[in-house]
Design a protein around this nucleic acid. Sequence first.
DNA 1: ACACGCATACATACATGAATGTAAATGCCA
DNA 2: TGGCATTTACATTCATGTATGTATGCGTGT
Lengths: 205, 205
Amino acid sequence: MPRRTKAEAEATREALLDAAEDVFLDKGVSRTSLEHIARHAGMTRGAVYWHFKNKADLFHAMLDRVKMPLQQIIDDITAERQTLGPLDTLRLATLHAFEMLERPRSCRVHTILMHRCEFISDINPVELQNRLASECREVVRRCFQQAHDDGLLIDDIQPDVATLMLHSMIGGLVHDWLRAPDSFSLRESGGEAIDNLFYLVTRRP
Amino acid sequence: MPRRTKAEAEATREALLDAAEDVFLDKGVSRTSLEHIARHAGMTRGAVYWHFKNKADLFHAMLDRVKMPLQQIIDDITAERQTLGPLDTLRLATLHAFEMLERPRSCRVHTILMHRCEFISDINPVELQNRLASECREVVRRCFQQAHDDGLLIDDIQPDVATLMLHSMIGGLVHDWLRAPDSFSLRESGGEAIDNLFYLVTRRP
DNA sequence: ACACGCATACATACATGAATGTAAATGCCA
DNA sequence: TGGCATTTACATTCATGTATGTATGCGTGT
């Protein structure tokens, strides 16, 4: 039954993207056909090809509905205008990213990105994350440098090392949690780990 | 030219696995056909089907040639017979795992596992890593518990939290390094980060 | 020592199924 | 009624698995 109103067409587009999330998550990206996605949304492949150029285009559209956690951190840090110290800026940005990740759609999409997809034609999530990682690392490094200059860091902790520690802990927590979201709470246990890291690197009187 | 000697047959088997590593790394697992692998090794698919049941079997054989880093850590810790303290046991096991990972074959295979593969029929790397992760986490937790009982940990660091911190840092470092092995040295920078974590959690006089 | 026979180590050919992209057909809202 | 949303039908490509072909190393008997 074709051609509903414009709003309904937009609704099927969203439904197709929702279905894509479900099926990608369940079977992995490369093993799901456009037929699978369409059927899961109660449509046929024709609908998919109407709204999207191909599988890569659909995948990209699915990504566009969420924000990358590292991007979130970058934005939070750069938006922060000196009302917090550099260490609290980093800490809160990280916790905020964890909160975002626990939203169902974010969780699904990033699980797909991390654990259910290798390549999607020219869209390589590894390259994507690579760009973000180095950009984020640079922003974080500047914060730690500032903290170091302000004498906030415990003795002989170099900003570079602190950056690597924080960055890898974030990555590891997210990675592990997305692999098994029920094994621990990202906000609670993860946040506790992050808080402890900042506690440990902060100079005490 | 069929039927070489038994040794030569074993050589082609290894060559096929080497080729699989190369092509999987280059194109991702799902996008490489057995034809690709065979051609890259200078053979035909017939050779592949002689030595392996199918793609999953070949993939599994490829995995069998390396040891999982988390498994390495588990083994190192359980093999250690009290000549080191619990914290040094953990630290050295981690650094040892990093060394193993920098071997070319290890690096290739684990890059494939982490960034170039989603599913391979019934072999799900996510499930695999999941088992290892929880097993490793338990072993690490016991070490930190011991350190805590021995009064080696800095005030109010709970063993559970320290475990999550170390585990996520290891995971994050490995993940990031495999994604871009040239961006930093796992043994040097990664080792430095790990060393610093242990320095920070160790009670100082 | 030598030929014979067989199992081995591959290569080649074929049948099948599945996914893709596109073109034509269909119905419905505006 | 005409263009928009969706279905249906079709051609093509590609990977897989299997079946078959084939030459060679290797053990065996004499």
